[in-house]
């Protein structure tokens, strides 16, 4: 059971949506989840149709059975200032640091510091306990950087621990690494049934494993139903064209002979796609990871669609908890 669920995926695969749906799905029966974003895109706010998230943990949704979803957009600069304040009581010196560009340097130019701060803040939320000693959040779900960058992003603490060999940054980096490499963490990869995202998923898994980071599940997003198989399409394209036209007419459609061509063309494209998807499912099956499929929300993603995906994830059983 992993309390820190990291969701990555190639751009355009809907990883933010899947992360949000997962946070909703895990927030059942009075559970509390924290959904964090780290790329400053305000994707969570857009998805939940709320105003831009500030740098604070804020309740954004209620799930079935009284569960709650909190959200946090982590800002590296604020995280660094908080951190300095917490450990060094810097006060106005923090502002002076900002003024001369040291904060800028640390959060944008210095290699890895930014990522250390982002993962560090998320790990702090994972470990945080209330006065009674219970975890503040039952789960923390991260909308993480895309597959191509995820290993570097998560593993940067190792690198920083190597660069900064002593001091609090070093200790912080090592503490974060202990959480990230433990079974408490699971890194899920979102993909589509298309060649490039699947290839990137396979590469991403190899990299994650190479860095000893715990790979979770493969989530295939936007899966469309197979309405017709190839054999049926071929039959339709052949000697059954006239029959199809007649049947269209029987169903009450006008000018059916003009419809047959375009309809069959669409069917042929569909068949081609089904075939490509079959191939990609084969590639995914060889990865040897648990794989889950989420349906395409035909009307476009909105809040209702998000709750539908959450219900879908929940029905996949206890797989994610």
């Amino acid at each position: 059971m992993s309390r820190f669920q990291v969701v990555s995926g190639k751009g355009g695969t809907g990883k933010t949506t899947v992360a949000a749906a997962l946070a909703l799905a895990l927030a059942t029966e009075g559970k509390r989840t924290l959904l964090v974003e780290v790329e400053g895109r305000q994707g969570i706010a857009q998805l939940f149709e709320t105003e831009a998230l500030p740098y604070e943990e804020r309740k954004i949704a209620v799930a079935s059975g009284g569960g709650e979803v909190y959200a946090l957009a982590i800002d590296a600069e604020r995280a660094l200032l908080d951190y300095l304040q917490m450990f060094y009581k810097l006060g106005s010196a923090g502002r002076a640091l900002k003024k001369i560009g040291a904060i800028d340097f640390a959060t944008t130019i210095a290699p890895g510091v930014r990522d250390v701060l982002l993962t560090g803040k998320a790990c702090e939320a994972v470990r945080r306990r209330d006065r009674q000693g219970r975890f503040t959040y039952d789960y923390v779900v991260m909308d993480a950087p895309p597959t191509g960058r995820i290993t570097r992003f998560l593993n940067v603490n190792d690198e920083v621990a190597g660069l900064a060999k002593i001091g609090p940054i070093h200790n912080q980096a090592q503490a974060v690494m202990r959480v990230l490499k433990s079974p408490e963490t699971a890194v899920h990869l979102v993909t589509l049934l298309e060649e490039m995202p699947v290839q990137e998923t396979a590469d991403g898994i190899t990299e994650l494993k190479g860095a000893e980071l715990p790979v979770g599940k493969v989530i295939v997003n936007m899966v469309r139903p197979h309405l017709l198989d190839e054999a049926a399409v071929r039959a339709a394209a052949g000697d059954r064209r006239k029959e199809v036209a007649k049947t269209l007419a029987a169903a009450g459609l006008s000018a059916p002979t003009k419809l047959v061509g375009p309809l069959l063309e669409q069917a042929a494209e569909h068949a081609q796609r089904v075939e490509l998807e079959r191939e990609q499912r084969g590639v995914l099956a060889k990865l040897g990871l648990p794989t889950y499929e989420l349906p395409l929300i035909g009307e476009g993603m909105d809040l209702a669609g998000l709750y539908r995906l959450a219900a879908e994830l929940r029905s996949l059983g206890k797989a994610f908890s």
Partner: peptide, 21 residues
């Protein structure tokens, strides 16, 4: 293919095309 699909009536096929559309 045609033989294999003989269980598919033209109505099912057409309905499939229409759903796809």
């Amino acid at each position: 293919a045609s033989d294999a699909r003989s269980v598919t009536t033209v109505e099912q096929l057409t309905a499939g095309l229409l759903h796809l559309h």
